[in-house]
Structures are given as C-alpha cells and as structure tokens.
Design a protein around this nucleic acid. Structure first.
Lengths: 110, 110
DNA sequence: AATTATTATCGTAATATTGCGATGTAAAGA
DNA sequence: TCTTTACATCGCAATATTACGATAATAATT
C-alpha cells in the first residue's frame, strides 16, 4: 500500500490529478508567482527569496519542469526560468473544463 | 524534515496549495466527477464505482469534506453527498486569479 | 590553473499519504 | 431483539514527499 492505484482511473483523471498535485505545495506556488512577477529571469534568487535550501528549491523546480510548466535556459553560469505560457493557459483551460461541469441537482442538497 | 514549512509562505500561497493538494489525487477527482454527474445522491455506490475499499473511499471523502468542497447529509442509514456549489465556484475563481496573473516578458524566454 | 558562483544530483532522515482489514456505530428491517 | 446495511474510524504496512547537507558539474573570473 501507500501506492496510488493509477490504473483504475481514466487518463483524464490521472492527468488532472497530477496537474493539481504539482501545484499542491506552497513552495511551488510561491516559485511560480515569483517567476511570473519578475521581469528579469531569476534563478538563484529564489533561494534568497524563499527560506528554503538550494537543494530543496532545485527539487521543486525539477517537478515543475517535469510537468512542463516552466522551462530553464542556461545563461552562463546561471539558469533562467520562465513560464511556458502556452501550457499555463492550457492547464487553466483544463481546470475550467473540470469546474464547469454542470452540477446536477440532488434532492438531499440544501 | 519531511515537513512542509508553511510558516514561511503567505496565507494565500498556503491556501492555494491546500486546495490544489486535495484535488491532487485521481480518486478524489473521480469522486467529485461522480457526485457532480449523478442526479441522485450517491454514497456507497462510490465503493462499487471506483475499485477502492470502503475505508479508502471514506478517507478521501473526509478530506474533501474537510476542505468544504462536499457536504454529507445523513439519510436513514446512508449518507448523501453533494458539492457545495458556492465553494466550488469560489475555488474556481481563486484558481483563475492565480492563472490570470500577467506573465512578465523575460529576455531569456523563447 | 585555481577559484568562485550557480545549479543539479545523491543520500538520508523525518514526516505524510495511500490503502485496507478489522472494528465500532447507528439506523432499518426481520 | 437480532441481523443487516452503510459509514466512520483505528491501526498498520508500504510507499511518497519534503527538506537539507554533501558533493558533483559547469561556466565565469582571477
């Protein structure tokens, strides 16, 4: 046990869940907000900005990269991160499809 | 370690992350879709519908209830679950605020 | 070439999550 | 009352996540 039974769910359910999951940590929310709001491309600044160790930040960045939400470009000895705006908008759209499902009226609901 | 350092993040960041987190499991996505799409109020049917043990379903329902996304009404010996539509729309709005932040243009981004 | 700066990765400890059997509880029905 | 049904909760095992120090890798700087 302790292992999610992905095989019993639909691809859509697994996809949605993994998108939600990667956003389900305050450090990753903070990292995204920071990258979105900086004009310049930040990288190591995240370590100073958030109060987490460099290894920890790097790990969170990796998860965001794995989902394709951010991209990292090497610039000399540092790395510049930015949002993949296309995917960003697409995720929003996928979430809205989920939320916009018409909720059927149930007798027991107030 | 192994403990999320909530205290270093803003309330908004922690709030968003916990909303995303509760949706970040395919069983909970499936449960929500099922409740949304049933006209009648379902309860134990979830155990048959998804391939998970009753104890497991009950635990996922509890997490959704704790976030206020669903409500359970006792009806005889069963429980009728439904979406809290008001909160449902509010969560969607909170997500959209997050996604609609203007992404600043970065020199390094393609 | 040696040093420094920036990031990634590895290994590991602490904690959280997932899943389920067993058991408890409360209402309905026999 | 006894049994059945429908859930909730407890306790546990397996696995995942979070965090960080140490170290490796790479590029700039001296």
């Amino acid at each position: 046990m302790g292992l999610t039974k992905s095989e019993i769910f639909t691809n859509e359910q697994n996809r949605l869940a993994s998108l939600f999951k990667v956003l389900g940590h305050p450090a990753r929310v903070a990292i995204l907000q920071y990258i979105i709001n900086q004009k310049a491309c930040i990288c190591n600044d995240l370590v100073d900005e958030l109060g987490l160790a460099q290894a920890t930040i790097s790990q969170h960045l990796k998860e965001l990269k794995n989902m394709g939400i951010i991209q990292g470009t090497i610039e000399g000895k540092s790395v510049c991160y930015c949002i993949d705006e296309k995917l960003w908008k697409q995720i929003q759209a996928e979430f809205n499809v989920f939320f916009n499902q018409e909720v059927k009226v149930n007798s027991c609901c107030p």
